[in-house]
């Protein structure tokens, strides 16, 4: 059975904003599924549809075989959620937050105690468990929320931008916990993010979403291979002029913005001298030039014509 399966899932707001547009997904059990897209792409709306907080305008979705509209309470028993916005009771301690959650899922006293210790250990929060959440750092709050979300041993875990607003180190720690959860508990994880690195590092498969539509779904490596070529980014004084010149050769210009020209090409390292040469001949001053293997940013650029972050 599929952990998540949707068929033309659609959500419109006020009849005009199509936040999620005929999305078709199929997520296997035990998979970490990355949902990558810029702000406003429809990631949170998709999560809210799949976690029964919002009703779809049309289309269907099933979690572990249960319909998100007709079998809401069944779905809720199977899932754990970490929302984009923090949702902890800051006037309670970490342990009290977990305890309330466990009670709501009907865990017995003994189960609660065991499970709380276990999840606190898993996210390294045992020492601070009895402090008020108010005093936690952003990273600790996030870890507590993750711990809480799998208190009741859900089958599918939804993480909506789990590292949003965290510094590099805290982000790295959270990634480790996510991987560990997936490995040790075998939980299916549906993770949304607008950090391509996050999607790349964590996901078994990635769906790229933009304007509510899924553009492509595949393994991160496959996605990058699809573009195949190397990416050269050139910062220079007259990018449009350079573009015209470069387009006459066999180079494939992806786009230009402000003073940046992005070119995708095979054997990029061999093409750089040529670019520098033609730029010099035409009086174009090059400020910087860089070459990298394609990443998911480039994949996004390839499919949408714009950058993920911008």
């Amino acid at each position: 059975m599929k952990a998540i399966e949707t068929h033309n899932l659609t959500k419109t707001f006020n009849g005009v904003i199509i936040a999620v547009d005929r999305v078709n997904l199929s997520v296997e059990e035990g998979e970490i599924f990355g949902f990558l897209g810029p702000n406003g792409a429809g990631k949170t709306t998709t999560v809210k549809l799949l976690t029964t907080l919002l009703r779809p305008t049309s289309g269907t979705a099933k979690i572990c075989g249960y319909d998100v509209v007709r079998q809401r309470s069944k779905v809720r028993e199977k899932i754990g959620v970490v929302f984009q916005e923090p949702a902890l009771d800051t006037e309670l301690t970490g342990r009290e937050n977990l305890d309330f959650h466990a009670r709501m899922y009907g865990l017995s006293r003994k189960e609660r105690e065991e499970r709380i210790e276990y999840v606190l250990n898993l996210v390294d929060l045992v020492d601070r468990a009895d402090d008020l959440v108010r005093s936690y750092s952003g990273g600790m709050k996030r870890r507590l929320e993750i711990a809480r979300s799998f208190m009741h041993s859900p089958k599918v875990l939804f993480l909506d931008e789990p590292t949003l607003g965290l510094d590099a180190r805290a982000r790295f720690t959270v990634w480790n916990y996510i991987k560990r959860l997936n490995k040790e508990e075998g939980i299916t994880i549906f993770l949304t993010t607008h950090y391509m690195e996050e999607a790349d590092k964590l996901s078994d498969r990635v769906a790229i979403i933009n304007n509510g539509k899924i553009l492509v779904i595949d393994e991160p490596e496959e996605l990058k291979n699809r573009i195949g070529k190397d990416v050269i980014s050139i910062t220079c004084s007259h990018p449009e002029k350079l573009r015209e010149i470069v387009e006459r050769t066999d180079l494939n210009v992806v786009r230009t913005t402000n003073n940046l020209l992005v070119v995708s090409v095979n054997h990029g390292e061999e093409k750089i001298p040529m670019i520098v040469e033609v730029a010099n001949e035409n009086g174009i001053r090059i400020e910087s030039i860089s070459l990298h293997k394609p990443n998911l940013d480039d994949v996004f650029l390839h499919y949408t014509g714009r950058k993920l972050g911008g």
Binding site: L53, V81, F83, A87, L88, H101, M104
Partner: peptide, 14 residues
């Protein structure tokens, strides 16, 4: 406002 309602409505309770 504090976001805890989101967590609550996602639990198995109507």
């Amino acid at each position: 406002e504090s976001g805890t309602m989101e967590a609550l409505v996602a639990m198995p309770i109507s």
